[in-house]
Each structure stands twice: as C-alpha cells, then as structure tokens.
C-alpha cells in the first residue's frame, strides 16, 4: 500500500509516463510519531510472558519428563491417527450431506424441503453426546438391517454388528450431527450470492445442475470455507466425545488411559493438547491455500491485473 499513486495507472494508461511523473514528485518528509505507550506495553508483555514461560517450564508439577516420555509413545500416536481418521471421515460424510440438504431445501418439492428442514432440526436440536450413544446402541436396537418389500418378503438382511461397528457408529454419529450445522453455513453462503448470477447462467441456457456446479458452488466456497474450517477444527476436538459410543482409540481416550494408570493427569493433558495444536496448525495451512484458491477474482489486488 506504499505507493498508491503508481498503482492507479493499471488501467493501461501510459504507466511509464505516470511512473516517471511519480518519481519527480517531492514527497512530504514527515518525522514519525513517537509511541511511548507501545514501548511500555512491550516491556510489560515481555515481563509477564517470560515469567509465565519460566513458571510453567520449571514447575515440577508439570512433570515435563513424563510429557516427553509419552509425547511420541505408540499408544498416543495411534490415538492421534484415529482422531485424524474420525475427523476426516466425519467431515467427508458431513460436507456432501450438507450440500445435499441445501439443494433439497432449495428445491420446489415440499417433501424434499421438509425432509431437509427436519434433518437439521433433529440433529442440531439434540446433544451430539446423546446421538453418539444412540449410534453405539444401534446394534442392540436394530439387531438386523434388512431390505424387504413392505409387508412382503425380505430381500436381504445382515447382522447390524457387522455394519455399525464402534468406529462406524462414531463416524456416522459425528458426521450426521455436523451435516446439520454445515447445512446452515452452506445455506448462508449460497444466499450471499447475487441473484443476478444464477440469472446470467440461466440466460446462457445452463441446466440447473450446471448452475450449481459451475456458478453457485465455486462462488459460495469463498464465504463457506472460513466457517467450515472452524467446524473442522471443532470436529477435531469433538472426536473426544466418541467415548459415548463407546469408541476407545482416539487421542483423548488414549492420554486419559495413561493418566489414570500413572496418576499424572497434567503431563498427559499437555500431550493431548500439543497434538491437537499440531493438527489444528496443519489444518490452518490447508485452509489458507483453499481460501486463496476460491478467493480468486475477489481478493486479487487490482494492481496485479495480468494479461
């Protein structure tokens, strides 16, 4: 933002001459303002943060040796792996499902509209912990999953335990719950698109499906990604609730189990927190690139206008 005068020439109007003219202008020489308040703040923050770090690092109650011992233990690493699997799989279910819910909500068919509304109402309106417990009990509630002609013969049947394993119950439970929240985020994203966009696409003779995939979804992505990133990070932490199923391989369960064995909860909470932080940081990097890609045409600086 340093030399706006030059950037305004991008309209293609003799940039060389304009740049030369800009060179010749004698700029104002301004003595920078002093900021004593900032220096005081810097000193205060340094003192407080040094003390805080020192207080944590040298405090024997934190048991840093135990922390180091378990940070990379296979038991913990397996927990990290499962937490990642749960997060990715649940989001992989939730995102297409949420998109389907939004398209259903937009349809002219009152049954589809109502079904979408009901789904969001049900899964958003009940606690995820309760939902997970129900999915865990699925095999008890419905011992066999079967496909049959209504009031007629059974075509196909399978034991529920083989289908709804604890891992499946955890993933489906988290994914269905998340789909309801994502559907509302997506709906907001689509509503933010100017009505002229689908009209212009219609005027070109595009089919409704093409309008969704070529025009609406790419444009909604821009506004949808930041809150969806938020939800993904939330999901990462929400996986610790799968003990309601019960599913017992995730990171939080693993570190809790060790803590119960060693009677040292603090270092193992720190182990879990560290891994959550690492994964969250990795997700943030991914989000940055996604945002940059889908922000094209919006977030580009005018002066970069290429040919």
């Amino acid at each position: 933002m340093s030399d706006c005068g030059v950037k305004l020439t991008v309209d293609g109007r003799q940039p060389d001459r304009a740049a030369a003219a800009a060179e010749n202008v004698a700029r104002n020489r301004v003595a920078p303002r002093r900021h004593p308040g900032r220096w005081i703040a810097v000193v205060l923050i340094l003192i407080v943060s040094t003390q805080a770090v020192q207080g944590v690092m040298t405090n024997p109650n934190f048991h840093w040796d135990t922390y180091a011992e378990y940070l990379f233990s296979p038991f913990v690493l397996r927990g990290v792996g499962w937490t990642l699997v749960l997060t990715v799989a649940a989001m992989a279910i939730a995102i297409p499902l949420a998109l389907t819910l939004v398209i259903m909500r937009d349809s002219g068919n009152p049954l589809l509209k109502g079904a979408s509304w009901f789904w969001v109402w049900l899964f958003r309106g009940t606690p995820v912990y309760t939902q997970l417990a129900f999915w865990g009990l699925f095999a008890v509630l419905f011992p066999r999953i079967s496909l049959s002609v209504p009031f007629g013969p059974e075509l196909f049947s399978v034991d529920s335990r083989w289908i709804v394993t604890p891992a499946v119950a955890a993933i489906v439970g988290l994914g269905f719950n998340e789909s309801a929240y994502l559907a509302e985020i997506f709906r907001a994203g689509f509503r933010a698109i100017d009505r002229g966009q689908p009209e212009a696409a219609q005027a070109l003779g595009m089919s409704q499906a093409k309008i969704w995939t070529r025009i609406l979804i790419p444009q909604a992505m821009r506004t949808i990604i930041p809150p969806t990133g938020n939800e993904t990070i939330g999901m990462l932490k929400m996986t610790s609730l799968v003990l309601a199923v019960p599913f017992t391989l995730d990171l939080m369960f693993a570190t809790n189990a060790i803590a119960n064995r060693t009677y040292l909860p603090v270092p193992l909470l720190l182990v879990a927190a560290s891994w959550y932080l690492v994964i969250t940081s990795a997700l943030m990097v991914g989000q940055y690139y996604l945002e940059r890609y889908f922000g094209r045409g919006h977030d580009v600086v005018v002066s970069k206008g290429g040919h």
Binding site: A200, A203, G205, M206, Q208, F294, R296, G297, H298
Partner: peptide, 24 residues
C-alpha cells in the same frame, strides 16, 4: 427445464449490472 434451457440458448441477454461470473 432441459427444454426451456435449450430455448434460452437461442437468446443472448445483457444485464444492467453485467452479472459476469466473478470467479472466472
């Protein structure tokens, strides 16, 4: 809808507010 889309292809429309696709 498919037939209507096909009919629309035979006309071109220019809007007051351009309505260009901003992501392209």
């Amino acid at each position: 809808p498919r037939q209507i889309a096909a009919q629309r292809r035979r006309t071109g429309m220019v809007f007051q507010r351009f309505n260009l696709f901003p992501h392209m």
